[in-house]
Nucleic acid binder design. Structure first.
Lengths: 343, 343
DNA sequence: CCACTTCGTGAGAGCGCTCTCACCGACTCG
DNA sequence: CGAGTCGGTGAGAGCGCTCTCACGAAGTGG
């Protein structure tokens, strides 16, 4: 437990600990950093002194000489709207925090919704104030990761960057397989005309899930029908509109693969409004397995991806890179289907 | 844009900027900190030099001498389970981030789910590594805020601390009024026997929402009936069980105020299972206005609290305290009812 | 028994910044 | 016209830590 301390007097320094232990600052420093070449006597004396004085190293002083900040940024490059539409975002943050904290680093949380904010962060990172960056929700072909890497700040991205730059390091869910599994699940159920509502095509998740849907249809000997593809944006409202369009264009469809759970919920609402039943008339499968999927009526069949794992994996890769350990440049995480009432 | 920089050469220092501007380090520092007593000539020269060299101040060095870390912790003292059950948690983080970033400080994200993690954080804070703490999801009469304040680290808590310590600084939603409004809404609708499913009674939100419910009934001339009060825990499962109990104990009830939206969703499911209809047989009102409330069937009438405002307000109070400005010790934020189909 | 290595240690420099203090020129005032 | 004031400035001392280097004691081999 920390002692009461008046604001005027200062926390104990290494000097104090060393004096109390009867050794030099250098030796105390060695012990506290866990360096080798210290005798057991000295080690014990220093540890005891540190405990008695409730010593906590001054990170600023350490950072000044080591040129490491011992902190990484969790940078969300996302507009506010979409940020709030990404329900497992928190899970990613949690996963990342676990790893980062275990390594003794601190996690700095940053939102950069606008180009101005992004540039401000670049400047900040240029000052050497973070050892690495976890970049979440990168858009289009934003050059931010390249800029950071050029400045010598290792960066790990969530989701394959659209730019396709082969030097970038990222972690992604297996969106193609997930979409294929979802579509196959509908095929197995006997669906003949399976529509899809896509995600935004400026994100790899949107592109890949569409690709997986098409791959499954082709594997089953069907030719993808463009009338059965409607554009969505991962939101409830987008799913609602897209589903109405699909029903108008092709009333005989009997199943839908929605590229996100929110989209699927919007689609189910549209189906209900048209007087049809889920899953009897039209089966629905989503993607993400957000909590709303369980609460929805009927409960939504979907594809689960673990964003906590995503955060953990990203953090682990980043730590490896910061410490100069070799690490794979790309990790693709598995997904699995979750069967509920809607299909 | 930052220039390409080989890992070996270092970022420009104040020394470099000063030399380029033809002034001393002290003057350059004055300009960059925005201090007074600098001639216009010197100011312009320094700013130009800083721009040309893409100078970014070294925070560690500054921190070392000013004894300020220019960072605050966003500390979540919450078990993982509950953390994931608090859907607007992210909104609070966002609100806090906006304010903190605008003040030029950085936000360090910390989760302390276990006593060991909490103690580790105490030790960390004792080292003077944060200028203040935003404490989220404090439980029971946890002594953490008192400890931090004793160490001279200003702390702002979300939600009235149960310990009732009058020295603590907090921001809370007006839970009593919210619960009263929700109950009055049911009374106005003509409900005669209004039950409630409470939140956990080791949290002020749970206690206050029960108090508001009772106050509304008494104001309407009713004597609260203990058979109509069931214990919940803010979860779907808890709401489901509690509602079954209520229906068994008092089959003639015609309305329920649930202390959270998730609880309300569980309750609606139980009502449905018992063969009754919402809102025709039993009207339901929740609390929070989480996104699931809109998606639920029927859409949930509820009480909205803005957790983004909460985060913003907490951050503002903390910044005021850090900078030594006087500030109120307690802020209670308003709530409003949102009418949807369930009542 | 002497050269050599190894190990534990301490002295001391310096990381990049802020801040105090002293100084200097220009001004005001009696 | 000398004494006092004041805005602008630079020299220099640290802040608390790490890290290099040198040194003495102990161990090792020819």
């Amino acid at each position: 437990m920390a002692q009461r301390r008046r604001p005027t007097d200062r926390p104990p320094t290494l000097e104090v600990v060393a004096a109390r232990a009867g050794v030099s600052r250098a030796t105390a420093s060695r012990v506290l950093r866990g360096a080798a070449n210290v005798s057991d006597d000295a080690r014990e004396a220093v540890l005891a002194a540190a405990r008695e004085t409730a010593y906590a190293p001054n990170r600023a002083a350490r950072s000044l000489v080591t040129r490491r900040s011992d902190s990484v940024a969790f940078l969300v490059a996302e507009s506010e709207d979409r940020l709030f539409n990404d329900p497992y975002f928190l899970a990613m943050l949690r996963g990342a925090h676990t790893q980062i904290a275990a390594a003794g680093l601190q996690l700095i949380f940053v939102i950069a919704s606008t180009p101005a904010e992004a540039e401000q962060f670049e400047h900040y990172a240029a000052g050497g104030h973070v050892d690495g960056v976890l970049l979440v929700s990168l858009h289009g072909d934003d050059g931010l990761p390249q800029t950071l890497e050029r400045m010598g700040v290792p960066t790990v991205i969530n989701g394959r960057p659209l730019s396709g730059d082969p030097s970038l390091c990222y972690v992604d869910s297996d969106n193609v397989t997930g979409a294929r599994l979802a579509t196959e699940l509908l095929l197995d159920r006997g669906a003949h005309r399976i529509a899809t509502i896509t995600g935004p095509q400026d994100m790899c998740a949107g592109q890949d899930r569409l690709a997986g849907y098409r791959a499954a249809l082709r594997a089953a000997g069907q030719t993808p029908d463009e009338r059965l593809v409607a554009a969505g944006d991962f939101t409830v409202a987008g799913g609602l509109t897209a589903m109405h369009d699909l029903l108008a264009a092709c009333p005989e469809l009997d199943a839908v693969f929605a590229a996100s759970d929110l989209t699927a919920i919007g689609a189910m609402r549209a189906i209900e409004q048209s007087g049809r039943k889920v899953p009897d008339d039209i089966a629905v499968v989503g993607f993400d397995d957000i909590r709303e999927a369980q609460v929805a009526t009927p409960a939504l069949t979907t594809v689960r991806q673990s964003l906590q794992d995503m955060g953990r994996t990203m953090a682990r890769m980043l730590l490896d890179r910061i410490d100069g350990r070799t690490t794979e440049r790309v990790r693709i995480l598995p997904v699995e289907t979750v069967r509920r009432a809607s299909a």
